[in-house]
Amino acid sequence: MNLMMTLMLATMIPMILIIFNHLAPKTNPDMEKLSPYECGFSPLENARLPLSIQFFLIAIFFLLFDLEIALLLPIPWALNISMTTTTWMLLLILLLTLGLAYEWNQGALDWTK
């Protein structure tokens, strides 16, 4: 019975969504909606305009801390294996904290320059 209900739901939900899509009113897009959007930069201007280094710095910080989360997420499940995992986790957190403190001390995070 569970398999039958699952198959029914798996076919009914997409069918309902298709019906809603056809019943929804059509939109009339204007030129602004049809123009490409390039992260806040106009794609019709000169492509050689200089960009702010802070934009790239924030992107690098995001990647570093995203990587930190990806590496530290399985740590609670791995803690019962060995003490080496805890040591690597603490070393990674310490290294990232020291790097963040260095960047902060150098003024790279100051947006008002």
Rank of each mutant, 00 (worst) to 15 (best):
L34W: 05
M89C: 12
K33D: 14
D110K: 03
P14L: 01
T86D: 05
L100A: 10
L94G: 12
L64S: 09
E38V: 14
W111K: 09
M15G: 07
Y37K: 08
T84K: 10
L92G: 05
A101K: 12
I18A: 15
N21L: 13
L79F: 07
R48N: 15
L109M: 13
N28D: 07
L49M: 04
L91M: 13
L98T: 01
I13H: 06
N2S: 14
I58S: 12
I93S: 06
G107Q: 05
N46R: 10
N28P: 03
L7Y: 04
A59K: 03
T86G: 01
L100G: 01
P36C: 10
K33E: 15
S35F: 12
L57C: 04
K113G: 04
S35P: 00
L23V: 06
M5C: 09
A108V: 11
M8L: 14
P25K: 09
I58K: 15
S35E: 09
L73M: 12
L109W: 04
L63W: 06
S42E: 05
G107E: 08
H22E: 06
E38K: 14
R48H: 09
A78V: 08
I13S: 00
G40W: 05
T84Y: 10
L91H: 06
L72W: 00
L63T: 11
T27K: 13
L79Q: 07
E32Y: 13
T112V: 12
M5T: 15
Q54I: 14
A78T: 01
S82N: 09
F20H: 13
N80C: 08
P43N: 02
M15E: 06
E103H: 14
I53N: 11
H22L: 10
L34Q: 10
I58A: 12
T11D: 00
P29T: 02
M12I: 12
W88E: 02
T97D: 00
L7E: 08
E68T: 06
T6L: 15
F20A: 15
L17E: 07
L73T: 01
S42Q: 05
F61N: 15
T11K: 00
T85D: 05
A70T: 05
